[in-house]
């Protein structure tokens, strides 16, 4: 796999292809023809055209990509030397939750990670919410982290201010495993890394990014990262959402896909869109993350949790 790293980097970031087309190609060479990625790239153009039924434009793109493998080798060497890993979608280490949530249409073809990658296939929850979160939202976040720790679940968050940061710090304080999904290329994650180095070394924290490793932070990347956070989690907990922005659109999208989304019931004086999300079908939970009576009847299992928390 190590030797294929530069090929995977090249394929994963083919400009204008989008994950869907790239994944379809991967399915073809990996599942249908059962060849490795470097074998695929070294195939004759004719084979690409005939057997892989690639369009001329795609062949041009792939030829250009092929010439860039050399360039990406330099980045790949540095990346691997620094202990980052590349996990292609074809490997079992790739998050199966992510794959089943996002399907081949949206799943990123590779994950860049550092840390204990076995975390990726543990049961997980995401905690999301706004950057300037209210006191209640932060308290909620902390409670959910505590709950996750008791249930041995991994916490996925986005390494932004507010709820994200709280989710991470609480996870750490309760020794709960966590994944942070970066809004930037993994090699540009510098200042934050120093602070959480110890947790990475101890195997409690996994750093993950899906972007080209050298890309610096951008608003667009922060937006593009949200589906990954939602996708990596089995359940989603919303501490606080306004009526637009990343949290909002992520939840709406999740509801459409029938995901289990829990939203904190706001107090009367709070100005946020939590209630609207509940109206749209999200499951209301109290400040401790416990489903309200009405819902509990439908789901007996959770009564155990209630007692065990207190």
């Amino acid at each position: 796999m190590i030797n294929e790293a530069s090929y995977w980097i090249t394929l994963a970031h083919l400009p204008d292809w989008g994950n869907s087309k790239i994944n379809n190609l991967i399915i073809k060479f990996h599942h249908n023809y059962q060849i490795s990625i470097d074998e695929f790239f070294n195939l004759d153009e004719q084979v690409w055209r005939k057997e892989y039924e690639l369009e001329e434009k795609q062949i041009i793109d792939l030829k250009k990509a092929k010439s860039e493998i050399t360039n990406n080798s330099f980045i790949a060497e540095s990346l691997l030397n620094q202990g980052f890993e590349i996990i292609p979608i074809t490997l079992p280490e790739y998050s199966q939750t992510l794959k089943s949530n996002l399907k081949s249409k949206y799943s990123p073809p590779i994950l860049y990670i550092k840390g204990n990658k076995s975390i990726l296939n543990e049961e997980s929850i995401a905690i999301v919410g706004s950057r300037d979160a209210s006191k209640n939202a932060l308290l909620f976040t902390d409670n959910i982290a505590k709950k996750a720790s008791i249930e041995s679940k991994t916490i996925v968050s986005g390494f932004a201010k507010g709820v994200d940061k709280k989710a991470l710090d609480s996870a750490i304080s309760y020794h709960c495993n966590s994944v942070i999904v970066l809004p930037q290329g993994i090699m540009t994650f510098t200042s934050g890394y120093k602070d959480y180095y110890k947790q990475v070394v101890d195997g409690e924290l996994l750093i993950l990014s899906t972007f080209f490793p050298k890309l610096p932070w951008k608003v667009e990347l922060a937006m593009a990262r949200n589906p990954i956070i939602y996708g990596l989690a089995d359940e989603i907990y919303v501490a606080e959402s306004s009526e637009k922005g990343g949290t909002w659109s992520g939840v709406i999208d999740g509801l459409k896909k029938n995901r289990r989304v829990f939203v904190r019931i706001p107090e009367a004086n709070e100005k946020n869109a939590n209630n609207i999300l509940i109206e749209k079908g999200a499951i209301p939970v109290d400040i401790n993350g416990i489903e309200t009576q009405a819902n509990l009847k439908l789901d007996d299992d959770n009564s155990n949790i209630q007692t065990s928390i207190f």
Partner: peptide, 14 residues
């Protein structure tokens, strides 16, 4: 020694 890894990563034909 790192060059070894680079060499391994470089594509066939280079």
């Amino acid at each position: 020694k790192r060059i070894i890894n680079l060499v391994k990563l470089l594509p066939k034909g280079l």
